[in-house]
């Protein structure tokens, strides 16, 4: 039991850190709800895993990965925004997922809210490895994405392929969401991508501080939520969210104090 708790903390820290880091871009792109909505796209994949007897997380990951590519491609073809396309995909995925789960309510609850009792050493190692790769690749594309946000032409004139960078970013989000589902569930994993970055944004005057704080806030939210969940014996997902919101409120107070002081 202690092992599961420690592994859960490790997974929470790794996923929270990488999700917070990735989320710092999402908040800049004003796509905060995209991260949230994308997490629901995993639901049919998770359900298929349960129904067909393979690892549900693998199913969720495949659904997220394929959806990210489809959404990116449709965005290029139709010129519709990511928000619109993800919005459509997420409601469809939610509907299919719930139909597939049928009356298997326990599995549906685990998919929606997370189940850390199933976290083992293998999962912890995979989560840490994947998170490290995500952080490394995100660091690699960070400059490109920020330049694209400032001015797409400016980025292209510097030889940056904005479309390819966006695809890589969406794939990184899908990988992180897939890993995070075990901790917080599909309903709440989007939170890890959004709220830590929002808290970091309001206390940051430069990018370096912003993305480091986003990642740290993400990790602290996940660790404290899981620790509380273990001692209170309730689902970790909602507690991860509450921990993150507390950080957000503290950031608001700090910002207010700074303004008063200056």
């Amino acid at each position: 039991m202690l092992d599961t708790f420690i592994f859960s903390l490790i997974v929470g820290a790794a996923v929270g850190f990488s999700a917070g880091y990735l989320g710092s871009i999402m908040v800049l792109e004003k796509m905060a709800l995209v991260g949230d909505a994308m997490s629901h796209v995993a639901l049919p994949g998770l359900a298929l895993g349960v129904l067909m007897g393979f690892n549900p997380l693998l199913g969720g990951f495949i659904f997220l990965f394929v959806s990210a590519i489809l959404i990116w491609h449709l965005g290029r073809v139709t010129k519709l925004s990511f928000e619109t396309l993800v919005g459509a995909a997420f409601t469809l995925a939610l509907a299919i997922g719930i139909l597939l789960y049928g009356d298997n309510l326990d599995a549906l609850e685990a998919a929606l809210f997370g189940d850390i009792t199933k976290v083992d050493l293998t999962y912890a190692v995979i989560a840490v490895a994947v998170s490290l790769v995500v952080v490394f690749l995100t660091r690699f594309i960070y400059r490109k994405i920020v330049l694209g946000l400032i001015s797409e032409e400016l980025a292209i004139s510097k030889g940056i392929n904005v479309a390819r960078t966006n695809l890589l970013y969406l794939l990184l989000v899908s990988v992180t969401v897939a890993i995070g589902i075990q901790v917080t569930g599909t309903l709440l994993v989007g939170f890890l991508v959004v709220t830590p970055a929002a808290a970091a944004r309001i206390v940051s005057m430069n990018l370096s501080r912003y993305f480091v704080l986003s990642a740290i806030f993400g990790a602290i939210s996940a660790i404290s939520g899981i620790a509380l969940s273990s001692s209170l014996n309730i689902l970790p997902g909602p507690l991860v969210v509450i921990s993150g919101v507390v950080i957000f409120v503290v950031a608001l107070v700090v910002r207010r104090q700074k303004k008063i002081g200056s």
């Binding site: 400032i150 001015s151 005057m205 430069n206 990018l207 501080r209």
Partner: peptide, 22 residues
């Protein structure tokens, strides 16, 4: 190249960071 419009209001990027991105 210097474009006519750039959007920086919502991005917490410092002058130093921006120039180092060039």
């Amino acid at each position: 190249y210097v474009p006519q419009n750039i959007s920086v209001k919502d991005i917490p990027i410092s002058v130093k960071e921006f120039l180092s991105y060039s």
